[in-house]
Amino acid sequence: MSLLYKIAVTSLAAALRMSFVLLAPALGEAISEQAGVYNIGVEGYMIMGALSAYYGVILTGNLWLGVAIGILGGMVISLIHAYLSITLKTDQIVNGTGLWIFCLGFSAFVFRTAGTTVYIKGFSPIQIPVLSELPVIGPVLFQLNILTYLGFLLIFVVAVILFRTPFGLLIKATGENPLAVDMAGHNVFLIRYISVLLCGAMSGLGGAYMSLGVLHRFSEDMIAGRGFIALCIVLFGNWNPWKIFVGVLLFSGIDAFQLRMQVMERGIIPYPLLLMLPYILTLVALSVAVLGKKNPPKGLFFPYIRGGQ
């Protein structure tokens, strides 16, 4: 009983701690897709975020500066994507795929050339006084690290922006019918650029967290498809921040669970099979996602060309 309790509680806590890795890019992508631009290269944004944050911390010695550099890393790649997709108006899928593959090679080269494998303490759990002593919910909710709390805040902020601000209305309108927004006198291109850059920033932040708060260093396969999983979660959550959060919890939960199982149940279940679990879950989620009613923005994937088709 006690072992099960231990596994459950630590899994839940780990799930919440890990949730930021998927939450940030998923929320960012939700914003960008609502504006009409699809970022298949989120994986690339995350890889660059992880890479830049890691070396940022090593070079500057400051954790938060490293985080900022990580955000910047993701934004730079997303800026290229924005330029290609919004200004040059080329195919968003091709652009994203190309950028992702570029990031794969680039990060591998930089990492191998730099050669460091320094362990970075980065983000560690904070013990919130009093509350963290509570039974069950104490270790689960109140011993998380600061970025996880930021993640919760982010869901709320994104939801407010999308549903309750004029900018959110403009984002939604731009995704559905950019002509209407243009004719109302707003700058469609700026709205889309900002949305894509937000996605890049948030994905870079998610990647930064991976290298600074989860693995505490960089490794070449560290993102392992999480960017794509984030894309699945956006679909699964029907572009709604709260539903996306539920999806993120599910995946982080499985992720944390299989990590725990590897550590605790040595040899009973071969670890590669455990490693597969999150991806199998993703496949299942994809199948489930298409069953429900989905309302993708009508203008998604289509570049806006002023003055006619």
Binding site: L235, M276, Y279, L283
Partner: peptide
């Protein structure tokens, strides 16, 4: 795209 990518890891 999403399905084939995920199946890679599996």
């Amino acid at each position: 795209i999403l399905s084939t990518l995920v199946m890679n890891f599996i």
